[in-house]
Design a protein around this nucleic acid. Structure first.
Length: 579
DNA sequence: GCCGTTTTCGGCCCGACTGTTTTCAGTCG
């Protein structure tokens, strides 16, 4: 049966819309919740549903939150390209009405009211009605509601899209620094998706332990970064920053700080699972702690207390995505995550030979200062003209320079490598005899990124089949917040890499983070070895390794899954055996 | 609509803030 290709995000969008429409209709809230949970499962699933469905349509039902009904709807979508149930719903609730609930402050009830009473079906209608003062005539609405609707429309326009981690982190750190200057602040941390180190974050969640929450909130709203106070209560406030980001601050006494930190680190899925577990034990879990059946509160000062009370090992924040970590923690089977200290060398960086800012010697000195035992210099290949890519002849000349440096710096070792372009047809940008002379060969995609799924998959498989290739670098070619990942059949790519003994890079450049944690987890499950590379173009870039480690944590990666946690002799033995 | 080492039926996570309303619904995270 022919598949109508849809990405997971596209499929999920259908179910998010269905959930919104059912909610606007006033359907049973748990039915609505079920559709929304299914949509969330779909959008965050690391493998394309099309691929799962093609191999076995029934396999979809094994995914939590997806049962018989929703699985059948996905089947219809992928088989026919449409969904009758969804089309019928759209006759009742125009799709454009669904857009109204995206406006902060407007939920399904208000959207329904606006649609039924005023015939509002678009954001444009909404703005017109608010500006014309028509909304105040509705029950429960006032002139103030109209002001808030207009503010909500502005916020929506400004906040469409998440913020890359690399931008959110410094903002959060600056706010924390400001908070910690107050003697009222006993503890302060950033939580939310930022603490889980997601690649992008929606807003900044800050938590504080203090005996005087009201005063801390007042102090916070007066920090110089704050441009506008959106809401302000006795324990929490939401502010708009001059940078355009939104920040939430929640303040509780130190006795509850652990529960607070746990609660607002999330993820939502993780917390839902955790609270279900608590319920099964006759407890209710909130951001203040556990409440027992007698209604007695047992606050938690540390996160450890929250987990141990539930019989769980401590779960690192990066793992808290509701993907099996709670079960693993219950059975003492959490991974022993790789750390920055485990990494013995950096396997991707550039020098002035191509588009780097510093010489090979300067990069090597910087790496030595970081305590590394080895690095790979991996300048671009000739085809990447804009980056001053290297020809076979220039690679020979660079090799001479590297050999000389190695004599000088021993036992530190510089591997002579290259980041070789994969052409659109899957051939490589340098001849085999040149590749054979290198210590280490990385391949990557820098062009023709819009190829069809089939073409891209074939292209990469062909490239990985070249016996000189050691590492597939920044595999998806995504740039966070700027460029989508290439489209391909990832499970097939993993099989090809496995078959040819090619390793996949976890590129630690915060613009890339590629593989990301989710993909890395799939890769190690497929039996692949990973490598860390910062892709540094100057010595400061070497510091980005921690971004890669964060993603590795999200991928449940342990030291033995990573090539460059091994000592130099083992690295060399492996590479030489492939030459 | 989904799900089950207490359930195949009867549950389904919890609390703060806002605004309009005089005790609470809607929204959000």
């Amino acid at each position: 049966m022919p598949a109508h290709f849809m990405s997971n995000a596209q499929i999920a969008q259908v179910f998010f819309n269905i959930a919104d429409m059912l909610e606007i209709k006033g359907e049973n809230r748990f039915r609505v919740l079920a559709y929304r949970r299914a949509a969330e499962q779909i959008v965050q699933h690391p493998v394309a549903f099309v691929d799962l469905w093609e191999s076995d349509p029934k396999s979809l039902e094994e995914i939590p939150g997806i049962g018989e009904t929703i699985s059948a709807k996905i089947d219809e979508l992928l088989r026919t390209g449409k969904l009758q149930f969804y089309e019928d719903l759209q006759l009742e609730i125009p799709a454009s009405v669904v857009a109204l609930v995206k406006v902060p402050g407007i939920g399904p009830k208000t959207a329904k009211l606006l649609y039924q009473e005023l015939g509002i079906t678009s954001l444009g209608d909404l703005r017109d009605a608010a500006e014309a003062g028509k909304i105040r005539s509705l029950p429960g609405m006032s002139a103030k509601t109209e002001t808030n609707v207009l503010k909500g429309l502005d916020t929506l326009a400004r906040l469409s899209g998440r913020i890359p981690l690399r931008l959110a982190l410094p903002t959060a750190n600056a706010l924390l620094e400001g908070l910690r200057k107050s003697p009222l602040v006993l503890q302060a941390e950033a939580a939310g998706s930022l603490r889980r180190r997601r690649i992008t974050v929606g807003d900044i969640d800050l938590l504080v332990a203090s005996q005087d929450p009201v005063a801390v909130i007042e102090y916070f709203t007066l920090l110089p970064q704050v441009s506008q106070v959106e809401s302000k209560g006795e324990t929490k406030t939401t502010v708009l920053l001059h940078t355009g980001l939104t920040a939430d601050l929640i303040v509780l006494p130190p006795t509850s700080y652990g529960a607070l930190l746990q609660h607002f680190t999330g993820s939502k899925d993780h917390n839902v699972e955790l609270r279900e577990l608590a319920r099964n034990k006759g407890l209710s879990l909130s951001e203040r702690g556990f409440t027992d059946e007698k209604g007695q509160l047992h606050p938690c000062a540390t996160e450890q207390e929250v987990y141990s009370r539930l019989g769980l090992d401590f779960i690192p924040p990066e793992l808290r995505e509701g993907r099996g970590e709670i079960e693993a923690a219950a059975h003492h089977r959490l991974p022993h995550l790789v750390t920055l200290q485990d990494v013995r060398g950096d396997l991707q960086m550039h020098s002035t030979w191509s588009d780097g800012a510093k010489s090979v010697a300067e990069m090597a000195q910087a790496a030595l200062a970081k305590g590394y035992a080895y690095i790979a210099i991996t300048d671009h290949s000739q085809g990447l003209g804009v980056a001053n890519g290297l020809t076979p002849e220039r690679l020979d000349a660079q090799r001479a320079e590297i050999d000389a440096l190695n004599k000088e710096l021993a036992p530190f070792r510089i591997l002579a490598g290259c980041e070789v372009d994969i052409h659109a047809d899957g051939s490589l940008d340098l001849p085999d005899e040149t590749l054979a002379k290198l210590d280490i060969v990385l391949v990557s995609i820098h062009s023709a990124m819009k190829q069809s799924r089939e073409a891209m998959t074939e292209r990469v498989i062909r490239a990985l089949g070249n016996r000189h290739v050691d590492i597939f670098a920044h595999p998806s070619a995504r740039l966070v917040g700027e460029r989508e990942a290439v489209d391909w059949d990832f499970p097939q790519i993993l099989r090809a890499a496995q078959q040819h003994g090619v390793m996949l890079e976890m590129n630690a450049d915060p613009h890339r983070l590629d593989l990301d944690g989710e993909a890395a987890r799939l890769a190690i499950q497929a039996g692949l070895t990973l490598t860390f590379g910062t892709d540094a173009h100057d010595p400061a870039g070497l510091d980005n390794m921690s971004f890669g480690i964060d993603q590795a944590h999200r991928g449940w990666v342990e030291p033995q899954h990573v090539f460059n946690t091994r000592p130099l002799e083992q690295i060399l033995a492996h590479l030489q055996a492939r030459r």
